[in-house]
Computed example of a mutant assay.
Amino acid sequence: MTTNTRLIETTPERVWEVLSDGWLYPLWVVGASRMRDVDPSWPIVGSKLHHSVGVWPALIDDSTSVLEVNPGHRIKLLARAWPAGTAEVVITLAPQGAGTLVTISEEPASGPATLIPRPVRGPSLKWRNSETLRRLAYIAERRDLPTS
């Protein structure tokens, strides 16, 4: 399993707001290029994001579904990216001072990606998830607080 962490300079609640807004998925997930639909129940277990991966005109329609969730703390996803296969992705949030320590772990679960040896696939997953966390931080740290 490849794991990345990043301290995001905002509260876990604000980071969770980004994670629980499925329409923002392609803004922070490297490889996701557009959203087609978000299940109204997102992010409860079994709900799905319907997205596309790739670059036009070579877009592939796919989905990501929630396997487990502890709102505000942890979400486990099954991300599909055929023809490469699927991956299990776990994102955890832990308060740290005034910020949030975000950890993302990813492991191929099925398809051709499982045949790539860990020493080969590890560096590319490490880079991709480092950029994913950087994008997530940009959104969460700059997100306007809801007015009440």
Rank of each mutant, 00 (worst) to 15 (best):
55 V>T: 13
96 Q>L: 12
91 I>D: 08
71 P>R: 00
128 R>M: 12
117 P>L: 12
71 P>A: 08
119 P>W: 06
55 V>Q: 15
19 L>K: 01
137 A>T: 08
106 E>P: 02
53 V>D: 09
51 H>D: 15
73 H>W: 06
108 P>Y: 03
52 S>K: 12
10 T>E: 04
116 I>C: 00
48 K>Y: 11
50 H>D: 01
7 L>W: 07
42 W>R: 06
22 G>L: 08
106 E>D: 14
107 E>G: 04
85 G>K: 05
9 E>A: 15
67 L>P: 00
113 A>K: 09
137 A>M: 03
146 P>W: 03
22 G>S: 06
60 I>S: 10
33 S>T: 09
11 T>C: 06
88 E>K: 08
102 V>C: 04
111 G>C: 01
70 N>H: 14
71 P>L: 10
62 D>A: 03
25 Y>P: 00
72 G>W: 07
104 I>N: 12
93 L>W: 09
21 D>V: 00
49 L>E: 01
59 L>I: 12
142 R>E: 15
57 P>H: 02
40 P>I: 11
132 T>K: 02
76 K>A: 09
131 E>D: 07
36 R>F: 11
119 P>T: 05
103 T>N: 04
142 R>M: 14
6 R>G: 07
117 P>K: 08
47 S>W: 00
84 A>Q: 08
58 A>T: 13
65 S>T: 14
79 A>F: 04
119 P>M: 05
100 T>C: 11
94 A>W: 06
72 G>N: 04
5 T>P: 04
113 A>N: 10
145 L>V: 09
109 A>V: 07
31 G>A: 02
41 S>D: 15
141 E>Y: 09
145 L>R: 14
114 T>K: 08
18 V>S: 02
91 I>T: 12
119 P>K: 04
30 V>C: 08
61 D>N: 13
90 V>L: 09
142 R>D: 15
56 W>C: 04
75 I>A: 03
124 S>F: 15
52 S>T: 14
44 I>C: 11
16 W>G: 01
59 L>Y: 09
89 V>E: 07
93 L>E: 06
64 T>M: 09
112 P>Q: 13
132 T>V: 03
100 T>K: 06
1 M>H: 03
82 W>K: 09
117 P>H: 00
62 D>I: 05
88 E>P: 00
12 P>I: 01
6 R>F: 10
69 V>A: 05
93 L>I: 13
141 E>H: 10
17 E>H: 10
101 L>V: 03
19 L>G: 00
145 L>H: 13
7 L>T: 11
49 L>F: 09
29 V>L: 11
117 P>G: 10
141 E>L: 07
33 S>G: 05
28 W>G: 11
39 D>M: 13
42 W>M: 06
70 N>G: 08
69 V>E: 08
144 D>P: 12
128 R>H: 11
78 L>D: 07
68 E>M: 10
53 V>Y: 14
61 D>H: 14
113 A>P: 01
86 T>Q: 10
23 W>E: 15
143 R>N: 01
54 G>N: 09
94 A>T: 14
91 I>Y: 02
21 D>R: 08
12 P>V: 02
54 G>D: 08
74 R>I: 04
124 S>N: 08
25 Y>V: 02
14 R>W: 07
40 P>C: 13
86 T>N: 14
23 W>C: 00
140 A>G: 02
96 Q>S: 11
